[in-house]
């Protein structure tokens, strides 16, 4: 009697684990599934509110030379991104810091100090592609939920200026984790290659940045916090372009662009 019971119990437990294992092996659920509690639309609404608050407090630079350059770069990148849930909007802020960040909903903010530090438009395109990567790969949305919590996310939608301003500060000051940075690097290199630009530019830029001043906040976002930074630079410098790759560099007078906002 006891033996019968034991056998049936083992059969029952095994049946459940076989069922679960089969579902995993058969990949009933795709690898890239990511169900977030905040939808893309909600993220866009939060992003718009945070950006409006940021806009009021910042010195946004706009002149025909700079706008035309940013437009050329973004058009090339957006074409490479293809179908996307986001409409990308890139803004340049007057600030000496070498920094750039993505806000929820497709807003990318570049500091004028970053443009001054780049040697060519492809380097800036690589950084923008890196930020697009954070948005496309849902890193921004994940960070939004992780850092500020679900309750605050919904509170923002109530449109309280104090909360929005505070959330903006949190989003700007917090960093992505190592894996997310690596994924964004990878995304950037693929996108840049797809846009017929040099994918090694981001590595060249990081290397120059690392060899230069050490106290840039940009470094803290991109480099300092990650022990594997040398690996990241190595990986981007050794990135292999596909056969038949031909660079079609951006025809922008970069010195003229830099002079336009000084």
């Amino acid at each position: 009697m006891k033996k019968f019971l034991l056998v049936e119990l083992v059969v029952l437990i095994s049946a459940f684990f076989i069922l679960w294992a089969s579902l995993i092996i058969l990949k009933i659920v795709p690898d890239d599934i990511e169900i977030n509690i905040i939808s893309v639309e909600q993220e866009k609404n939060i992003g718009r509110l945070v950006f409006d608050s940021f806009y009021d407090e910042s010195d946004i630079i706009s002149n025909p030379t700079l706008d035309s350059a940013i437009s050329k770069i973004s058009q090339r990148l957006i074409f490479g991104v293809g179908k996307s849930d986001y409409i990308y909007q890139i803004f340049v802020v007057r600030d000496k810091e070498i920094n750039a960040f993505a806000l929820p909903g497709g807003y990318i903010i570049i500091f004028s100090g970053l443009i001054e530090f780049t040697e060519n438009p492809t380097e800036l395109a690589s950084i923008i592609a890196h930020e697009i990567g954070h948005i496309e790969l849902s890193h921004v949305r994940e960070r939004l939920i992780k850092e500020i919590g679900l309750t605050t996310s919904f509170l923002i939608l109530v449109n309280d200026p104090n909360i929005i301003s505070e959330v903006g500060r949190i989003i700007i000051s917090t960093i992505f984790d190592r894996q997310q940075e690596s994924e964004a690097d990878e995304y950037s290199m693929k996108l840049i290659t797809k846009c017929n630009l040099d994918p090694h530019s981001i590595g060249v830029f990081f290397k120059r940045l690392m060899e230069g001043e050490k106290d840039y906040s940009f470094l803290s976002e991109f480099l300092n916090t990650h022990p594997s930074i040398e690996k990241r630079i190595k990986k981007s410098l050794e990135y292999k372009t596909p056969d038949g790759f031909q660079e079609d560099s951006l025809q922008i007078d970069w010195d003229k662009v830099k002079l336009s906002f000084k």
Partner: peptide, 18 residues
């Protein structure tokens, strides 16, 4: 982290069947 993993969804499907 507020996002649902693949393993969790697979588990949900398994216990749904159970």
């Amino acid at each position: 982290n507020f996002h649902i993993t693949r393993d969790f969804i697979t588990y949900l499907i398994a216990i749904g069947i159970v």
